[in-house]
Design a protein around this nucleic acid. Structure first.
Lengths: 352, 352
DNA sequence: GTTAGCAGTCACACATTGCGAGTGCTAACA
DNA sequence: TGTTAGCACTCGCAATGTGTGACTGCTAAC
């Protein structure tokens, strides 16, 4: 028994119907509405075969059928290469980005909002991963006795800062000196490769006394918190999921909500998704059993061609994959170019 | 018919019982468990009076009674002056703050988490309000051609920064000059009082050309976004509310969740609460009808005696007000001292 | 291979019933 | 006069039973 053209059409019709109605589809519905010109009895025969192939499932004997994870997978595989938004759809999304966003955080938040409202599912957008990004400049700014601001600029123009404690008596001039040395020494290095020891060595070279060790370590921990604190994820539209019949059970809703309290869960999802331009995990395909009844669809965004972060959607397995994939791909690209714009204001200008 | 001692005791017993069980309390329950040595018939007579006074409500004729908003108000008024955590309770809370937190955001997040887990309700903590706080220093740091970092330090040591666009060709030295001028000019001013025009005037004084107007305005908008973006609120433990019988209705749960999407709602609550050291809004007392079935309890935190922010709890009207108020008061105070510590690292040192 | 027709299945919505928690009233008692 | 026991009555709720309708699965005819 093979999966001929007609079976595919019927499966497709069932998926389409189930995606919108969320209730098992009967043979009669397909016969009447799919426009295949076949009677319900014929559809039934085909559906029987589809069941044997593991593509359809029945909640109980006398109920209609619903697509299995396997069926969605088949469907997703067939469309994933060709998802694309239409021009009007693109325009409709871009309206929300009409004001120029100059702040990275703004871009992320806005994208999360738009993604959730465009798909009607829960959206998540992670901040760029900076550990693998090379340093361009390190600058310490004197704030007051005992406190300084540590600024880190990456080669691709991203900027991050944090306050650190400094020893008493450290002067602004001294901070400038250290900043300059650190910049020369660490320019081009990756943030994660700058260890406390390396910074300590640098202080020794400067001819500093042992007491400065605490200074070195507070710089190191500042640099570390700079990219650790960077691992944030913006989650939006959780309430959208609650309106779905899938979550009409209060217990499931509560589970979902407490998952949202732990943003690390989403961080893991998004981190795992970084390796693929577009990724779809359907139901049981998810590593985390929390999502075994949901689908997680993700895309990446890039800087200079390198993926630096990802964004995604969590929804029921009966999801409009075509639309969600297209929106994600588009928003991923648009994030990439917005971030590029934020970072490269100067790079572009260097050319003239 | 007045509210004598015994009626108060009975009301108290009903409140206590209802707070834990969430289901209407019958006269028999009180008679057996409250230890008043009265028969259920007597209790019934008293309950009849309490009903006439508007302190008890019945969901239907043959059901037990539950306290009205008015009853909770009476109760809260009677305890609000004297709420205090016991020493062991304090210690148990302080365990969560044992590691020194040097970052304001960390303090806020941690407090939100602890507040929610200590009360078992949804917690919210706002970031400090900076518009009324006076400036100490303004510093522009050159990042790259076209971009600079704007740092604002308030007189009480709080620090905030944001990136701004700068015109081409602006040098680091020029930024230093402007920083110095702005600091001299605006030190002691309040952030909200620094208008674009004032900054523009300063540029004119510097003898700058008209083209620099865009620079002035980007500094102004940077300063503005600095305190606008500051108005954040950390919300935790929304899932806790979903476990309550009050929210067993999925529709109510959804409403709650979509309220959480709009953090402005909570911002309004917390802003309104700034004027009172401790504030309790019971059910209908809330201005926002969204909370007409909930209670909102808030406290403030301070810097140098001035309230700069607030934190609170949203839960059902049947709330353990004594505990919640005590926890809030304590955490408000502990936030105050932690923030004081963060800001005053230098002030303290100035003394020696 | 396709279709009509029909028996059989099963969830779901709806009405019915009985139970139990709780009131409200009355009459008796201290 | 306040307190209590006793009892009829109310009403929500959970358990149970029933009818309906949306299906399938099969068979026989086209």
């Amino acid at each position: 028994m093979s999966l001929d053209e007609r079976k595919m059409q019927i499966l497709q019709a069932i998926i389409d119907d189930y995606i919108t109605t969320a209730s098992p589809v009967g043979s009669r519905t397909i016969s009447k509405h799919a426009g295949l010109g076949l009677s319900s009895a014929t559809i039934r025969n085909e559906m029987y075969d589809l069941k044997e192939l593991g593509l359809l499932e029945q909640p109980h004997t006398s109920a209609g059928s619903m697509p299995s994870d396997k069926a969605y997978r088949l469907y997703v595989n067939s469309i994933i290469q060709s998802v694309e938004l239409s021009e009007p759809e693109r325009e409709q999304l871009m309206v929300h980005f009409s004001d120029r966003l100059s702040d990275l955080e703004e871009v992320i938040k806005r994208t999360a909002v738009v993604l959730s409202s465009a798909t009607n599912y829960m959206s998540m957008v992670m901040t760029p991963q900076l550990n693998d990004i090379s340093l361009n400049r390190i600058q310490l700014i004197y704030i007051s006795s005992g406190k300084a601001l540590l600024i880190i600029v990456s080669t691709n123009g991203l900027l991050k800062n944090t306050t650190i404690d400094i020893p008493d008596g450290v002067t602004p001039e001294y901070l400038d000196k250290i900043s300059a040395m650190m910049t020369t020494r660490f320019a081009g290095c990756k943030l994660k490769d700058v260890s406390e020891n390396l910074i300590y060595d640098l202080f020794i070279e400067l001819g500093e006394r042992r007491e400065q060790l605490s200074f070195a370590s507070s710089i190191a921990s500042g640099m570390h918190s700079t990219y650790a604190g960077q691992n944030k994820v913006e989650v939006r539209g959780a309430d959208k999921l609650l309106s779905l019949p899938e979550f009409s059970d209060i217990e499931k809703a509560r589970e979902l909500m407490s998952a949202i309290e732990h943003k690390e869960t989403f961080m893991t999802l998004l981190n795992d998704a970084m390796s693929m331009e577009l990724s779809v995990k359907i139901g049981g395909e998810n590593a985390d059993p929390k999502f075994k009844n949901s689908s997680v669809v993700t895309a990446t965004y890039k800087l200079h061609g390198e993926p630096i972060g990802s964004l995604g959607v969590v929804g029921p397995t009966r999801m409009d994959y075509a639309k969600v994939l297209a929106v994600l791909k588009f928003l991923g690209d648009s994030m990439s170019s917005m971030i590029e714009e934020i970072c490269d204001d100067d790079n572009g200008k260097k050319d003239d």
